[in-house]
């Protein structure tokens, strides 16, 4: 395949991945990696390197908008970034010792899990009980603006949330994804943050987390300009278009269709991984 043809195919695939990733809330990374490995036969190490770059681009781009609106809790974000960056570097280091087939299997499992998470009905766990010692010490409790009024919230179970973030960061570094699904679990279910705050703060943290592992990947030669270039341009463009469409479209039915497609991709990756062992 010529370089030009390869670039065009990857560019289109990445655009699609960015679009679907933003419409479903799964993120572009989890879709571009199966596309590259299954459809184009790219080694998963290259796919991960390209994907992590696109994660930085999309998360920084959308974080810019959220931060200005004042919904993102910068203190919670920075506090938890200690956990995600340590995890991300560990994940990226471990990745070199793991056989590509094992990475594909783990990736497939996380993909299925993320797809289920996007379909699950969200339960609001928000609390005003601000007695958590850690939350007080780190000044994590806050409020966010919505339709002109301020909504205060309190943070619970800080150590457990921190540990979950360490895990989320490790998977992000290992698989080259944003691991938004895990971050949202840590913040919604464990730390009891409101959805708006958890999703925007998780997005805010992704850039730094991905940067930490991207540097390791860069030094290892996993970030190849020929793949990373079309992937990050395509995913960013797709995600930008997706976020514009998202405001108008009803995504409930779309989500079910995409979840089925993503699960199919995930099973393919697991199958490929197992048969390659």
């Amino acid at each position: 395949m010529s370089v030009l043809l390869f670039t065009i195919i990857v560019l289109l695939g990445a655009f699609l991945a960015g679009l679907l990733g933003s419409l479903t809330g799964l993120g572009g990374g989890v879709i571009i990696i199966p596309l590259l490995t299954l459809a184009l036969g790219v080694d998963i190490h290259y796919a991960i390197g390209a994907s992590i770059v696109s994660v930085i681009a999309t998360s920084s781009g959308s974080a810019a908008a959220y931060v200005k609106e004042g919904i993102t809790n910068i203190r919670i974000g920075m506090f938890l970034e200690i956990a995600t960056t340590v995890g991300a570097i560990c994940g990226a280091i471990v990745a070199v010792y793991l056989n590509a087939n094992y990475i594909a299997i783990i990736f497939g499992c996380i993909l299925i899990f993320s797809a289920i998470m996007t379909l699950k009905k969200k339960v609001d766990h928000t609390t005003l009980d601000d007695t958590d010692r850690w939350a007080k010490f780190f000044k994590l409790n806050g409020s966010y603006p919505d339709k002109g009024t301020d909504h205060p919230y309190a943070v619970k179970h800080v150590p457990a949330g921190f540990l979950m973030m360490l895990f989320a960061g490790t998977l992000s570094g290992l698989l080259g994804i944003g691991s938004g699904a895990l971050k949202v679990i840590a913040m919604d279910n464990i730390m009891r943050l409101p959805f708006k705050v958890s999703t925007t703060t998780s997005n805010f943290m992704m850039g730094v987390t991905a940067a930490a592992s991207a540097i390791v990947y860069l030094h290892r030669g996993q970030i190849d300009p020929g793949i990373a270039m079309p992937v990050c341009i395509g995913v960013l463009t797709g995600a930008t278009v997706g976020s514009k469409v998202l405001l108008k479209a009803k995504t409930d039915k779309l989500k079910i269709v995409f979840a089925v497609v993503v699960t199919f991709l995930a099973l393919q990756m697991i199958y490929k991984g197992i048969s390659g062992l």
Binding site: I56, G207, A211, A214, I215, L218, P225, A228
Partner: peptide, 8 residues
Amino acid sequence: ILMLIFTP
């Protein structure tokens, strides 16, 4: 890409 990594 390096500049992108250093943005965050």
